[in-house]
């Protein structure tokens, strides 16, 4: 039996299309909808023309339409860049690690939260887990350095007082990688549970009743009812996550990196930033080419993953 994973969305989809009458009676809401729509078109679709710069010898004063068309020159330059290989490797590495560790955590956490029966405890726990999501990476980075630096970090001070040796959490390449992943897990896991908890709430209680009748304990219920029921949600989020494999968070890397620990910190988003914003105006076209490359890979990964899960008999995303 298939259980719908995104009940709210699907319920809405199954509704009739808005009739002329409903538009007329709720017109104020549609007017308000225009604003985010306008935002979407201006900033998401309007900027599509700018992608043309990836194929141009772009000069800001000549503009997108006046610059010389050079086909794939920018791509050749970017792919031939001394550090493109590093950037590619690090981007994939950081994001795969993130996928492996950050992706399952919200699911596990949601299942755990679901088992808490005391409502007030659940609420307080959830809120505390959400909080890190609202901190910007700049703040998280600053806190991380206050806590974990080798020389003066508070955590290291405690370790030393307790008789241990100081640990270069952020100042040794491999440890940096571990810290990067764990800090990411901490920051995002609480917020990630929301969508799973919503999916769990919509599971038909009769399934649990049937499981109890069959003699399933809580662990078996979780394994055989809850998990299969939220599987389509997991698949959807997984596919969307794959789309970011070539991108990932620029702020997170910038906030957590330091110049002495640079084995894993040069990523594609950092490279785009270096070219597009740090190099004056001369490399905007190359930065665009790199960004376009990153997006195309992202789209391909999403389509490929979607095709793959559909071939396994799942719902997919598209």
């Amino acid at each position: 039996m298939r259980v719908s994973s995104l009940p709210v969305i699907q319920k809405n989809l199954s509704r009739k299309r808005p009739s002329g009458r409903s538009i007329r009676s709720y017109w104020e809401l549609y007017v308000m909808l225009l604003i985010p729509m306008l935002f979407l078109f201006v900033f998401k679709y309007g900027s599509y023309f700018g992608l043309a710069t990836a194929f141009e010898n772009y000069k800001i004063l000549k503009g997108v339409f006046g610059s010389e068309w050079v086909w794939f020159d920018n791509f050749i330059k970017v792919f031939g860049h001394r550090r493109f290989g590093d950037a590619l490797r690090n981007t994939v590495l950081l994001n795969v690690l993130d996928l492996v560790f950050s992706f399952p955590m919200p699911i596990i956490l949601a299942l755990l939260l679901n088992e808490i029966r005391q409502k007030s405890v659940k609420r307080v726990t959830q809120t505390m887990l959400y909080l890190p999501h609202f901190l910007s990476w700049v703040i998280v980075g600053a806190i991380a350095y206050q806590l974990f630096t080798y020389g003066s970090g508070v955590v290291n001070d405690i370790i030393e007082r307790m008789g241990g040796d100081r640990v270069p959490f952020l100042q040794e390449d491999t440890l940096w990688l571990v810290s990067y992943v764990l800090i990411g897990v901490w920051q995002s896991m609480g917020w990630g549970t929301i969508i799973y908890l919503a999916a769990i709430t919509s599971i038909n209680p009769e399934l649990y009743e049937a499981a109890v009748v069959d003699g399933a304990n809580r662990w078996k219920q979780c394994l055989n009812v809850t998990l299969p029921s939220i599987k389509p949600t997991m698949v959807t989020l997984f596919i969307m996550r794959l789309g970011q494999l070539m991108g990932g968070s620029f702020e997170r890397v910038i906030a957590l990196k330091n110049v002495a620990t640079n084995e894993f910190t040069y990523t594609i988003p950092v490279m785009v930033y270096d070219m597009g914003l740090q190099s004056g105006t001369s490399k905007i076209a190359q930065a665009t080419a790199l960004g376009l490359f990153q997006s195309v890979i992202g789209v391909l990964l999403v389509i490929g993953a979607d095709y793959f899960v559909k071939s396994l008999g799942e719902d997919g995303l598209l």
Binding site: R82, R83, V259, A260, N262, D274, M275, Q278, S279, G280, S282, K283
Partner: peptide, 14 residues
């Protein structure tokens, strides 16, 4: 100079 400046600045620090 304009071609390599940003790159070299980052590399120099490292």
């Amino acid at each position: 100079r304009s071609e390599y400046k940003a790159d070299l600045n980052t590399l120099f620090q490292e």
